[in-house]
Write a protein that binds this DNA or RNA. Structure first.
Lengths: 135, 135
DNA sequence: ACGCAATTCGCATCAATTGCTAATTAGCAA
DNA sequence: TTGCTAATTAGCAATTGATGCGAATTGCGT
């Protein structure tokens, strides 16, 4: 995801308006590696801006996802997680605390057993116990 | 997942009863590689047994999952998919028709960038266009 | 500063799944 | 075979994450 300043330009160029609510979400998401859910972002946003609507949080997240500025990922944890890191990477999910960490793999593994499938992308999810929960 | 006959034994040994509804689901699931949702299974079951409850389908699927006879997988398609194949394999999901295919990878790729994470398992989801939809 | 289209926000709605419970039934034992 | 008892069924209510809707508000180009 680009910086709040760059997003402001991008939104206006697309015909979208830049409201205080959106600016706040830009700031909360930029450089955020915690893979927050909409609920968590709503809680964070509410601290800085009491009265902001959960509906607006969803709206802005969807706009950002549509623009390719962040990706919405379903880890099966009940609610979607949002990741402003759209570069090539994978995820490790802790079975204990639910935290999602960014990881990298050398290269995408080849699959076999299916002819003629045109692969667009591959997502890998590692599950286990993170360092914090192991101690 | 084991055969309907073997499951019958396993259920009784666990103190669970083997009802006609469950026997039907055993048959519908055994050897099934279509990764059906609860809804689809309910539709199939309803053909053979009109009046069967969706609640019962969920109940039996949960029982089977608890016993390790099948796995419930969330591909982010809105509803859980059920896979009676519990051997080591991965999945390819068609972005066009939503079909889920079983695939295999030579070995799980090593991840880097996260120290002290104890990996229990890794799931890989390939997304793209299947052979049928490409033509 | 104006005007219009975009946005906000609260509420209703939706879809997938689970909770609850009265009526039924499987399966063991006599 | 019969009876007993705990498990199961089925229908409906409830729950949760997310979206549709619409009136009031507000960005922002002119």
């Amino acid at each position: 995801m680009r910086s709040p300043a760059e997003l402001t330009q991008a939104f206006r160029q697309t015909g979208l308006k830049v409201t205080p609510q959106r600016q706040l979400l830009f700031r909360l998401l930029h450089g955020n590696t915690s893979h927050p859910s909409a609920d968590v972002l709503f809680a964070l946003a509410s601290e800085a801006m009491p009265g902001i609507s959960l509906r607006t949080v969803y709206q802005t997240l969807n706009d950002l996802a549509t623009m390719g500025e962040l990706q919405s990922i379903d880890f099966g944890t009940g609610s979607a997680r949002f990741d402003p890191n759209v570069t090539d990477h994978q995820h490790a999910v802790c079975n204990e605390c639910g935290a999602v960490h960014d990881v990298h793999v050398s290269r995408a593994p080849k699959m076999s057993g299916l002819e003629g499938f045109d692969i667009h992308d591959a997502h890998i999810v590692y599950r286990g116990i993170c360092a914090d929960c192991a101690s």
